[in-house]
Structure formats: C-alpha cells, structure tokens
Amino acid sequence: MNAPAQTIVWPDRLFESLKRGNVAQVGYVPDAGHTRLIERCQADPDIHDVSLTTEEEGVALAAGAWLGGQRCALLMQSSGVGNCVNMLSLMRTCRFPMLMVVTMRGEWEEFNPWQVPMGGIVEPVLKLCEAEVYRAREPSEVEGIAQRAVQQAFGDERIVAVLLSQQLIGKKVWTK
C-alpha cells in the first residue's frame, strides 16, 4: 500500500480488461481513486468518456448504449452506489447489462466519517438490487475479477459490481 502512483498497475489492468471486453462508453463522476483509469479512458479515441453530474445518469447511459449496440461501464465511488438504486430498476426490468466499478470509501483508514454510512451498506444494497458483487482486496486480484465481471455483465445481461477495497486504493492516492 501507499506505493508511488507510477508503480500502481491495477488501474491499467482494469483498463485493459475493459478494452478486451470491447467497452466503448465509460461514464464516471470524477473520483480520486479512479483517476488513472479515467485518464486512460479519456485518452482512448475508441471510448466515449462521459463525465456525469450524478452516477444515476450513468445507469441510464448504459441502457442507451446497449440499445444501440455498445458496451458501457460506470465508474464511481461507493457513495455513488446509493445514487443509482432506483435507476437500477431499469436494468433489472429490461435485463440490461450493467458493469459498475466502485472505489470503496468509509472502510480502511477513512478520515471522513461522512463516508462511512454509505460505504458500509454498499454490498447489501447492491445485492438487494440483484447485482453480482465482487471485491478486490489485492492488486493481483483485480485483473481476474474484472475479466469475469465483464463476461458476466455483457454475456448474461445482468448487473455486476466490482468493489475495489479502500486498502487496495491506498490513502496516498486519494488524499491530495
């Protein structure tokens, strides 16, 4: 943990998994933990990067993308999961694929107590929304989990969330 940013490779592994999975749209609310992944998406001419005002917009974006034949991933912080709950009804009712990549707050070394209430209920909330939930705690786990999540979301047309533990992200990356 707390490795210098240039030695952290898991965001690149995540990006490569999205590319191998032909993800062509990526919605996000700017997030420190997702900084490198967002930058990779912005730099890729074959990805529409969509900066959202709230995460819920990204759920509807993903539905529209799939209607038009493209795959969309949604990047967010754990607080954003709460913003998505009702819109996930759209994905469940219509069986749209939904790939969510969530950086966790409110757990390991959290300085801000306001992050704790939502961070602590992310997993049960997602499961109530019929999402398949995976959690990566170690850098070595990220690629395999991402690969499986991509296959499951778009192959089975269902909601899949990849949670990136706060311990994995490391406090130096998100505390500027």
Binding site: Q25, H48, A60, L61, A63, G64, L67, Q70, M87
Partner: peptide, 15 residues
C-alpha cells in the same frame, strides 16, 4: 426510470 430518459438518449446517440 424517471429522470433517465435524456441519458438513455445520449448513450443511444453515441452508439
């Protein structure tokens, strides 16, 4: 999906 219609349109238009 109240509140999501314009965004469905955006995802579709980009695709």
């Amino acid at each position: 999906a109240m509140g999501g219609t314009a965004m469905i349109g955006l995802g579709l238009a980009l695709a």
